[in-house]
Design a protein around this nucleic acid. Structure first.
Lengths: 341, 341
DNA sequence: TTGAAAGCGCTAACAA
DNA sequence: TTGTTAGCGCTTTCAA
């Protein structure tokens, strides 16, 4: 360590004791103006700065929280991280980043950050169906908040978006714009998000007295690639769906590309509705009509929940739902006789 | 702090001294098989894990590096962060994230991480023209590596992409596909990247005996919005350019949108060439022909440079250039008589 | 090889 | 109010 001046050096130079300096630095002591000035001068002269580790060791807390995401180059998680950093910074917490890569052992490794006191709390995002292994590990810890996707059976506080409501709004919009044969292409059926979005989809169908057709339901990954594959399957159906509710924007983007490759246009031949409203949703052609869930808000809310949990250990686990909204752009077109709503 | 077992507890239980346990844990001591087993058992039983802060305080290093980026929801920086985390993790370093928001005072705040020993080194990305303030602060520190965009006058090691070469390849491609009136819409002229890309552009023009026309050069921000504005300006020119070399993919995407709004098609009326090859480049219509610079590689290389700097303090500052490549997609179309290359 | 003990730099309980 | 001092939990020098 390139040794810097210590608190003792400052104390000596200012003619005070370590304790006084420490207390002053922590605003636990009001010094006479003159003394304070002398102290500040000493700090300036020496270029003193407290050693983070000594401070943390002594206090027993790290003032740092961890964020574990499957990947950071995914636009959704990047936006979530942005929100988390913002909120953490405003509470004077550092944010340390872990990339889980959807690999259990890596994910579990990050839990060690809590053991070693490297972080005071952990924001955890995993979008991989869990066989219980991750859950069991998670449940050994406190000060964890789970974001975006559930890890069933874990006792932590959780922040999700309102998946059911989102799907409900979206599919209702599809129905009200005259679509009657609406497919649903979503993520892994084992994931809560996919289950809830499916529930909203079915609810909307039921509300409109439309029959649920299981052949119109496709489950895969929340990826662009899977969207392209799904387009092929969907285009081969007779009769072809007139709309697709995609479980994510990445799927929706793949769908558009896939249909285009097959000579089908969106929204000419089919309408497509996404979910998430990540930045690229507004860049593709046609622009994606989608359900916005604000990833940044989720990140911020996660940090807030975590800080609350940390400061009130007895606080019961919460399950927060962040709001969603329908964003109308160009990938849904009105069909048939009913006027648009 | 929820007190866990300490190294003393382990030592007592295993019938050894703290020192022995510590040394064993650090592989600085080979214990007889039987003793080792007893020790391991004690660690298991107690669920012992070393306190990160005690360890770091005692050793005087943090095994953590910081990454400061202007924002993380920008696809380019997200990919860079992904690479950095990957490389850091494989060297057993943690990565702590700071978002500078192109705000000098925030950026400078992050430098304190070095003072307080919170990080051993810092990866720094700022894409704001600097008036010297940031440079002066940076130059007070060691163990900093600057990425992506230069901060002129700073003595740190630097990792950039090969801007000149990239622009040269790109514009050469435009020329070889029959374009003769090539505009260049780029970022802030004060930034190194913009300067170098301009140099490559001019070089390509010169090589082809084409005259540089200053009215075809527009400088603004590396953003989609600026691309849209530039489209308006460009479309009003007589004669109109037949191609645009954009300084970034975000600009290129804005350009495509802007031209479309004005009733001009890409690549029908004009060809567009981007720079960066961020993920959305492959999602827009038409798909963007662009110069790929691999942000993830840059992140990895940055960490490598930083670790090298940290372990060899005498090592001179390096300036690394990561390779670029032309990615041909759909936004450039052949024009005129010359056959495509 | 192993143990004892002195730090690492700061905070906080206790005294004065 | 201010100073003194005992930790925080680990590493590492110095003895044994």
């Amino acid at each position: 360590m390139s040794k810097g001046p210590t608190i003792s050096d400052v104390a000596t130079l200012a003619g005070l004791s370590k304790g006084a300096v420490s207390r002053y630095l922590n605003n636990k002591l009001v010094l006479p103006a003159e003394t304070a000035a002398r102290l500040e001068a000493a700090i300036q002269t020496l270029g003193f700065r407290r050693n983070h580790f000594a401070q943390r060791l002594s206090q027993g807390k790290s003032e740092t929280i961890g964020l574990v995401v499957p990947e950071i180059s995914d636009q959704f998680f990047a936006e979530l991280a942005e929100g988390a950093e913002l909120e953490a910074a405003s509470a004077n917490y550092g944010l340390i980043l872990g990339i889980g890569r959807n690999d259990v052992s890596r994910e579990i490794d990050f839990l060690r950050w809590l053991d070693t006191h490297m972080v005071d709390g952990l924001l955890f995002v995993s979008n991989r169906p869990d066989d219980g292994q991750l859950r069991d590990h998670l449940n050994r810890y406190r000060n964890i908040v789970i974001l975006d996707e559930d890890i069933p059976g874990s006792h932590a506080s959780k922040v999700f978006c309102d998946n059911v409501q989102g799907a409900l709004y979206g599919v209702r919009h599809l129905i009200s714009t005259g679509h009657r044969r609406i497919a649903h292409v979503s993520g892994p059926s084992a994931l809560m998000s996919a289950g809830e979005r499916l529930a909203g989809y079915r609810q909307a169908l039921e509300d409109a007295n439309l029959l649920f057709d299981p052949t119109l339901l496709l489950n895969g990954r929340y990826s662009r690639d899977y969207g392209r594959q799904a387009a092929i399957a969907l285009s081969a159906m007779h009769p072809r769906p007139d709309a697709v509710f995609a479980g994510s924007d990445y799927i929706a983007i793949g769908l558009i590309e896939g249909f285009l490759d097959l000579g089908l246009t969106v929204p000419g031949d089919l309408s497509i509705l996404g979910f998430d409203d990540i930045a690229p949703a507004d860049m593709v052609t046609p622009r994606l009509t989608t359900i916005r869930q604000n990833a940044q808000t989720m990140g911020r809310e996660g940090v807030r929940q975590l800080l609350a949990t940390m400061s009130h250990p007895a606080r019961p686990a919460m399950e927060i739902r962040t709001p969603i909204a329908l964003v109308r752009r160009g990938s849904v077109r009105h069909r048939g006789r009913n006027p648009p709503i």
